[in-house]
Nucleic acid binder design. Structure first.
Length: 472
RNA sequence: GCCCCCAUCGUCUAGUGGCCUAGGACACCACCCUUUCAAGGUGGCGGCACGGGUUCGAAUCCCGUUGGGGGUGCCA
């Protein structure tokens, strides 16, 4: 094969972008990039009942999010399978003319009936030699030849299929429209696809498709079937019961770099001791021959760990930029007018190490912008359920009202001393202040936050908490 | 049922006949650090599914068993 390889990714637009599809796309993309080839995007929209045009943009956007960008010269498409229907039918007719396919008028009920009586599973080739012409309700079936079909797969090796185990499958439906097996092959031929890299669930289709390639007088492509992604029950990830929409991960605050890196490690591992590697390394080292053979569990916990790593690895400026989309919107407790960019910028580095998802960011900094903290009742009850907590708060108010320098060092010393007077360590002593000011027992470093908020705001909140306790 | 694929810690993997007393990562546990929570550091737990071969030597090669998975549509 002397010319540059042509890879393809051929999703059907069914609503959202599946993480399994994302990984397959990434594999194809990495290879196309490294080998100086082409990545063809083809939308398989022939199942009219299930397709919606707007899903196509969703696919393009999702691909762009994981770095498979339409404006990259490696990228070609999208093509739409529905627009090649004529070529599919033409190819089918050629096969019919050459006796490599034949028409059959049996309904699926009749086929079932026959298999019951003759004991054979599936279609038995009933119409093979009946010499039927095309007609309404008649399907065109491929005449599976004798012998065996050998699929040479880059990740599986040599896979043999006895042709007698493959029934004469349908090429054209009764209404004349092409089926997936045919359309897929004809398009691959048309688009000069040289490498078909797809999920393992397609392996049983491969001998059939290879026979179509052969029958059409074409050299089959290089096949590679990569393991499927599974859930905790070891079943193929399904949209019904599993969380698989790439868009959802994006919206929940997963970084694309983390998602890309994680997806690539499912079935493959970069050299060396670390799995966290930049795309450039992946692109340079990824090979199909190194892909694992067994299904991989899509582990949310590990994905989350990757995401945390990637968040922490950002520079302060990068983090600030990445945070922007997560600081506005309907789930944000503060109004745009309340937001204070300077305060956020000061707090951002302290929040950065405390995040797994970007969507967790607001609850770490919301108290900076709100007029009053959002009180978490559990935190409140836990902290002020004891007299220690209540008295510590009152002591702190007194101690902080003595005109100390309002910076985190002296604030810390002050609270430390106040707590010590009551026999409390700093960890215990700071809790009532934290809850009164931020509303929660956990959050970013307290004294830095107090400094940032300013004396007036802090004292106001401490007194408000004391009043609430007094009136309770 | 039939066809096909797969099998290393709980999970993702490294390993391509001797460097393996099986390495790393996630998760989990303990300790350290500590301003809560994280992060970070140190250590720990834990695996070659089983049985036969081949070989001086097997996680690695072969066969079988068992166990998982995928496919079996006039879906893609």
């Amino acid at each position: 094969m002397s010319s540059a390889p042509r890879f393809r990714f051929a999703p059907s637009p069914t609503g959202f972008f599946h993480v399994g599809g994302a990984r397959t796309a990434l594999y194809n993309w990495a290879l196309a990039k490294r080998l100086g080839g082409t990545f063809v995007l083809r939308i398989e929209d022939t199942d009219e009942a299930r397709n919606q045009p707007e899903w196509t943009q969703g696919i393009i956007d999702a691909l762009a999010w994981i770095g498979v960008r339409q404006d990259d010269p490696t990228f070609q498409g999208p093509y739409f399978q529905s627009q090649y229907a004529e070529a599919h039918v033409e190819a089918a007719q050629r096969l019919f003319a050459e006796g490599k396919a034949y028409y059959c008028d049996l309904t699926s009920e009749q086929i079932q009936e026959r298999s019951k009586t003759n004991g054979k599973q599936g279609y038995d080739g009933y119409s093979r030699d009946r010499g039927l012409e095309a007609g309404p309700g008649r399907v065109l079936r491929f005449r599976v030849p004798e012998g065996q079909t050998i699929v040479n797969d880059l990740v599986r090796g040599r896979v043999e299929f006895a042709n007698e185990t493959i029934e004469d499958f349908v090429l054209l439906r009764g209404n004349g429209s092409p089926m997936f097996l045919l359309a897929n092959v004809v398009d691959d031929i048309t688009m000069r696809v040289s490498h078909v890299v797809r999920a393992e669930e397609h392996l049983p289709n491969t001998p059939k498709q290879q026979m179509i390639w052969d029958a059409l007088g074409q050299t089959p492509p290089v096949w590679a079937h990569v393991p499927v992604l599974v859930n905790e029950q070891r079943k193929k990830l399904s949209k019904r019961r599993d969380k698989v929409a790439l868009e959802q991960f994006r919206d929940e605050g997963y970084l694309p770099e983390a998602m890309i890196n994680y997806l690539m490690t499912l079935g493959w591992a970069p050299q060396g001791e670390t799995e966290i590697v930049p795309w450039s390394t992946i692109e340079r080292d990824f090979k199909l021959e190194d892909v694992n053979h067994s299904p991989a569990f899509f582990d949310l916990k590990k994905l989350a760990a990757f995401n945390g790593e990637y968040i922490r690895a950002m520079s302060t400026d990068e983090f600030f930029e990445a945070a922007q989309p997560f600081l506005v919107g309907e789930n944000i407790p503060w109004t745009p007018a309340q937001f204070d960019e300077a305060k956020f910028r000061a707090m951002a580095p302290l929040a950065q190490t405390r995040l797994v998802l970007m969507t967790e960011l607001p609850m770490l900094v919301d108290f900076l912008f709100l007029d009053e903290p959002l009180i978490d009742e559990d935190s409140w009850n836990k902290t002020f359920g004891s007299t220690d907590g209540v008295e510590m708060l009152n002591d702190a108010i007194a101690a902080l009202s003595t005109g100390l320098d309002w910076n985190h060092d002296s604030l810390k010393l002050c609270i430390e001393a106040t707590g010590a007077a009551r026999g409390l360590k700093l960890g215990k002593a700071q809790a009532p202040i934290r809850v009164a000011v931020t509303g929660r027992t956990i959050g970013p470093p307290l004294f830095e936050a107090l400094e940032l908020m300013g004396e007036e705001q802090v004292m106001k909140r401490l007194r408000a908490a004391a009043e609430r306790l007094a009136s309770a």
